[in-house]
Design a binder for these strands. Structure first.
Lengths: 110, 110
DNA sequence: TATTTATACCTAGAAATCAGAGGTATAAAT
DNA sequence: ATTTATACCTCTGATTTCTAGGTATAAATA
């Protein structure tokens, strides 16, 4: 139907300001959604690879010593377009569900 | 994660005003969501059966002659409680996704 | 010192979900 | 004669999602 959390859209959104590595992306989705959206790494990394394959994001390794290396992702122009498509799909979806919940409002709302 | 259309919540919502038969439920979800939410019968009927099993809705056959008989579903008190849980889960989900899309707003908005 | 927590990447398989096709049956419209 | 609409239903293949596992280092805690 579209959207259940649509991880790809969320990734593109958090990358739209600054390039970030995967681990950081997952933490930001968690915190910026007020802990509502939580994705395991088993979901995140495949999603990143798919976005990269599609040309919506690009990766670059950032080597660190001592700590694990980081793969830093940044959004591409094509990715920004895709983000806009996701944004409007989301808006449509919200209004669709809202249309149903609203037309059957709870009686006795204070 | 919760919600992708969460058909069960939508069914409970459209049943909260009046009892309806399956075929009518699917048409209302379609129209009241402005054609955004479309479920095939292959999704609808199993969902109805599951809701009935859980005691959230009740069914009664309404015999018709000439036309196919109808199985009319009505929401139970337990179903209304469930609907409220779905409603608040939805609200939380929307604010979660909104939290991400909003903190990375499109530049150049007029 | 041993264990847990945090960092950072990744794959694979099980479970759940979804869309579409198929199946039965009648009546009305084209 | 065929299509559309009504009205119920199941099943299967594809996709999606989640969980659990696997590697490796450093810092904090017990």
């Amino acid at each position: 139907m579209a959207f259940k959390g649509d991880l790809e859209a969320l990734i593109l959104a958090v990358l739209s300001d600054h390039a970030l590595h995967g681990y950081e992306i997952s933490k930001r989705i968690r915190s910026q959604s007020q802990e509502v959206l939580k994705y395991g790494e088993g979901q995140l990394y495949p999603a990143l690879h798919k976005l990269e394959e599609s040309g919506f994001i690009e990766a670059e390794w950032m080597l660190q010593d001592g700590k694990p290396d980081r793969k830093v992702y940044s959004i591409t122009p094509k990715g920004r377009e895709e983000l806009e498509r996701h944004r409007s799909a989301w808006a449509k979806f919200v209004s669709g569900v809202g249309g149903i919940f609203a037309s059957h409002a709870v009686e006795g709302g204070k």
